[in-house]
Simulated scan of single mutants.
Amino acid sequence: MDKLDFIRLLENTTIPEECADAAKYLQPIANALMEIMPPLLFRFRAINEYSLSALDKDLIFCSRAKDFNDPYDSLLTAQSLETILNTDPKSQFSLMSVFRQLLIEGYEIPAHISEVFPSDLLKNLVASLREKSKGSPDINDMDKFTRIVNELKNRVNFFEVELRNSNSFACFSEAISSITMWGHYADYHKGFALSYDMRPLISRPSGNITVMPVIYSSIRFDATNLLASCLGKNVGIPVKRLDMLDSIKSSLYKSPDWEYEKEWRLINTNNILDSHPHLKYAPVGIYYGAQISDINKKILRRIAFEKGLAEFEMYIDKSSSDYEMKIRPLSFK
């Protein structure tokens, strides 16, 4: 199995809202992750009090998507829902009138709609629409309809923000030798990187913590059902959530512009209200940037020695014809 196989497996796996045994769906995903996950993943760090304290305490701090450098990160799109809500209210009202007429003539609700609503709710809704269709709509109905549409738009915007920041993340990379990663995320090669073996985290699937590869795609994840479910429940309509993995899936999609990062993402659905969500998990190695200062290297080496971390330093091989950072192991002196 490779990453493409895993992506297909993930995209084809759905956990319905009423599912009583999510583990049977999660275990095949965990098994696939164990096959494709590299032995080590790397977390690049600048040197400051925050990163030193986290290293000393074996803590991995997670961040919300709003704090990332990608404005599209975890930003939900609900294409069909937003298309409907952004249509001119007069046109929507006209379409509703046509829909009512179709119901009178025996039109059946499409399967992709009926599967997300309770049958009793649809039955009552259809009866109500047919009853209201007996009279001609007037301008007061139109005004009320417009106010409802505008309120729904506001609520969709609210849930887009809330859902985007409901999970927290810690970012890792396969690319320890990447010049760009060291430059962007480790203070221009003056910082350090930590290596982690994440396989124990995924060997037993959990609904709260997972580690998955980012999916680089030119097409954003369509979270229509997720938003519709939240919106419906907010206004008292029990819209079924068809896939309980949709919030995780939406967190994994990024533009191909970021593909050089070779990112894996720890997704934490715990501590939703915690401003600094974290988990305790120890690294197994440390890598010193090629331009780290002597004093910072000395501080880090002391911590690494106390923790028994494998130590490496990055360097430039001036005789090499490529642009890759080189690695050499260090022994404690």
Rank of each mutant, 00 (worst) to 15 (best):
Y196D: 09
S166G: 06
R204Y: 07
R199G: 01
S166W: 02
N208Q: 04
A186Q: 06
L201H: 03
N208T: 05
M181L: 15
N165R: 11
R199Y: 00
G191A: 12
A170N: 03
M198S: 05
A175D: 12
G183P: 06
N167Q: 12
F172G: 06
D197Y: 01
D187M: 11
A193W: 09
P205D: 10
L201R: 08
S203L: 02
M198N: 06
S203F: 03
S168T: 13
S177Y: 07
G183D: 08
Y196A: 09
N167Y: 11
Y185S: 13
I179Y: 12
C171N: 13
G207T: 14
D187H: 11
D187W: 01
G207V: 10
H184M: 11
S203A: 15
P200F: 01
K190A: 11
M181A: 08
S206C: 03
S195R: 05
K190H: 04
W182C: 11
R199L: 02
L194V: 07
S203K: 14
S168W: 00
L201W: 02
G183H: 03
S166H: 11
I202Y: 02
N167K: 12
E174S: 09
Y196C: 07
S178L: 06
G183Q: 04
S178P: 14
Y188Q: 13
S206P: 02
S195P: 13
H184W: 00
G207W: 01
F172H: 11
R204V: 13
S177Q: 14
A170V: 01
A193N: 08
I202E: 07
S177H: 14
I179T: 12
P205Y: 03
L201S: 04
D187I: 02
K190M: 10
L194K: 05
S195K: 06
S195F: 02
S166N: 14
N208V: 03
P200W: 01
L201Q: 03
Y188P: 04
A193F: 07
E174F: 01
M198Q: 08
W182V: 08
R199M: 04
G191E: 12
S168P: 10
S168I: 00
E174L: 03
Y188C: 14
